[in-house]
């Protein structure tokens, strides 16, 4: 008899695109992006093509090992911080997030 859907927090489907592939993650609006990023990186990290890029960067550059291989995420052109949540950015169901591999120079 209870009206369940009303007190359950709505979940959002966010699309994350990287390197030509797209995944959809289902998240709570108040979930920190850090968690979402981690999941996305794991998913994209399986891509052998990207692993090679990461490995190559690792070989050439010992200085920034900690930062290597991490992705950057943008929403409508703005950088998304791991500490933010979808609710803060007023994201809606089906919104698109773009991910890039970090770029270093020589």
């Amino acid at each position: 008899m209870s009206q369940e859907p009303e007190d359950v927090k709505p979940k959002l489907n966010l699309n994350i695109a990287f390197d030509g592939t797209q995944i959809t993650v289902k998240v709570k609006a108040n979930m920190k992006f850090a968690k979402i990023f981690e999941a996305a990186e794991k998913r994209f990290g399986k891509d052998p093509g990207m692993m090679m890029v990461v490995l190559a960067s690792l070989l050439f550059q010992q200085l920034h090992v900690s930062a290597i291989g991490t992705l950057r995420f943008t929403y409508e052109g703005n950088r998304v911080q791991p500490t933010q949540t979808p609710a803060e950015l007023e994201m809606e169901d089906g919104d698109q997030i773009d991910a890039f591999l970090q770029q270093f120079d020589l």
């Binding site: 950057r72 409508e76 703005n78 950088r79 911080q81 890039f100 970090q102 770029q103 120079d105 020589l106």
Partner: peptide
């Protein structure tokens, strides 16, 4: 605007000898 510089980005930019990354550039 849509630019965001975190402390580590500013540090990277200011340090002579460090490389610019996509955020700085």
């Amino acid at each position: 605007g849509r630019c965001l510089f975190l402390p580590q980005d500013i540090c990277r930019l200011s340090q002579v000898g460090s490389m610019l990354d996509d955020v700085c550039l």
